[in-house]
Design a protein around this nucleic acid. Structure first.
Length: 109
DNA sequence: CTCATGACACTTC
DNA sequence: AGAAGTGCCATGA
């Protein structure tokens, strides 16, 4: 019996999803911050990798995750960039000059 | 096991 | 302010 599955990878993924789901509308978090909140400090890159595996049909607020510089981690002009940008502005998060004011919009749990 | 990759972060120049 | 180099760490070939 499969008792406790040794793959904690699944667990950390779940934690990431629930943590992400907790990010309130109108606010954003950075990859590193989200990683830490999800209990996997210094694994910002992993967060990005996991988000990239998210199905396009997800209801999770993936667009509220931006990098530590306050910018979207997609090449400017790409469709992904445009989608995220639109979603953010739809929740009144201004994206000025391609960047977001973390001072004002970063989520503080 | 080693090497390359990636929706990142941090320090320095 | 922006670019470049370095560090981190799980994953998959």
């Amino acid at each position: 019996m499969p008792d406790c599955p040794p793959s904690s990878a699944n667990t950390s993924r779940q934690r990431l999803w629930s943590t992400l789901a907790a990010v309130p509308r109108g606010y954003v978090v950075t990859y590193g911050q989200l990683a830490e909140l999800a209990g996997m400090p210094r694994q910002a890159r992993r967060v990005g990798t996991l988000l990239s595996q998210l199905p396009t049909t997800t209801t999770l607020p993936w667009h509220r995750v931006i990098n530590a510089r306050g910018r979207l981690s997609f090449p400017v002009g790409s469709s992904a960039y445009e989608r995220q940008c639109a979603r953010l502005q739809a929740e009144e998060i201004p994206v000025i000059g391609g960047k977001i004011d973390l001072k004002r919009y970063r989520w503080h749990p």
